[in-house]
Amino acid sequence: MLRGLALLLVFQSLGEVAVRATGTVVPGPVVGMVLLFVFLVARKNPPESLVQAADGLLSHLAIFYIPAAVGVMLYAKPLAEQGLAWFAAIVVSTLGAMLLPALLLKRWLGNQPDTPRGESATSSEGTRR
């Protein structure tokens, strides 16, 4: 677990170094993710400690968004002034950006349930949500 966490931090640092060195707008963690991905694909089997650390972080991914999201309170005033415009723009464009890829993949990949081996009993709930 700790070894896995250390490995994640090493790749996060590598990502930051790569971003500083090249001056791109892509954030360091995204570059770190790509580097770790390449490392894992080349290595075939990920170390068990890394899987544990990743599962631990990803099972509660939502918590990491809270501190930044609370920052919305600082922009209450300008947001209230143009409320309808941005709200409608976000709802309409999020709907479109989800609907079109979904329809494309439904046609292209076929619309078959994809629960793979052994998972059906535990993680696939009766209703799709």
Partner: peptide, 20 residues
């Protein structure tokens, strides 16, 4: 809260594990 915020970057890196 910045300690939680910081881990957002680490969690982003961790996304490579299920992708691989």
């Amino acid at each position: 809260a910045q300690f939680v915020h910081f881990l957002l970057g680490t969690a982003t890196v961790a996304l490579a594990v299920p992708l691989a």
